[in-house]
């Protein structure tokens, strides 16, 4: 049981990393930094629903650190971490209420990821003008969240561990 869980988590962390990498290969937008699909959130939501809250937190935070070390820079670590943390907090809380489906959880997670990143970026720049990106990111985050949520719902139902 224990060994199986370790193996499963290792697999999921690797999957989350690969999803992040695939996403960086296909940039969706260059005009507004931060517009993205959030493929890695598939692995996070799957883990949150099928394995547990603690596992999902571990997976998400580990992914951010590993992806920043391999593909990113010192700054991307901090704002990715802020996005991931805020997203995890909100997704966990919404799931605990039991009143939202995966679609709602995924949308909230995506939007919060963008929010967390903007807050840190604004702090790094010492300027609030990042908020100009916010309307675009809220809309793109919602769209991405709907897509990821729909796929995650299928995966959570169909995948056998």
């Amino acid at each position: 049981m224990q060994a199986k869980k370790i193996a499963t988590m290792g697999l999921l962390v690797a999957l989350a990393m690969v999803l992040s990498w695939v996403e960086q290969l296909v940039p969706l937008s260059v005009t507004v930094p931060g517009v993205k699909l959030g493929l890695a959130n598939l692995a996070v939501i799957f883990t949150l629903c099928r394995i547990g809250t603690r596992a999902a937190w571990g997976l998400s935070l580990l992914r951010v650190v590993l992806v920043s070390l391999t593909f990113g820079n010192a700054y991307s670590l901090w704002y990715s971490l802020a996005g991931a943390l805020l997203s995890l907090v909100v997704m966990t809380l919404l799931r605990r209420t039991g009143r939202f489906s995966l679609l709602g959880i995924s949308v909230a997670g995506a939007v919060c990821h963008n929010l967390g990143q903007i807050v840190v970026a604004a702090a790094v720049l010492g300027s609030a003008s990042m908020v100009y990106y916010l309307p675009v990111l809220l809309v793109s985050g919602t769209a991405a969240g709907v897509c990821i949520g729909a796929v995650a719902a299928i995966l959570v139902r169909r995948v056998r561990l």
Partner: peptide
């Protein structure tokens, strides 16, 4: 069914916030 309704309210809320922010920041 009720979950779906709350999801839609959440999504509508985020989009409304985006629209208001955009108008306000113009």
């Amino acid at each position: 069914m009720r979950k779906r309704t709350l999801d839609i309210i959440l999504i509508a809320g985020v989009l409304l916030a985006a629209a208001l922010l955009w108008l306000w920041l113009r």
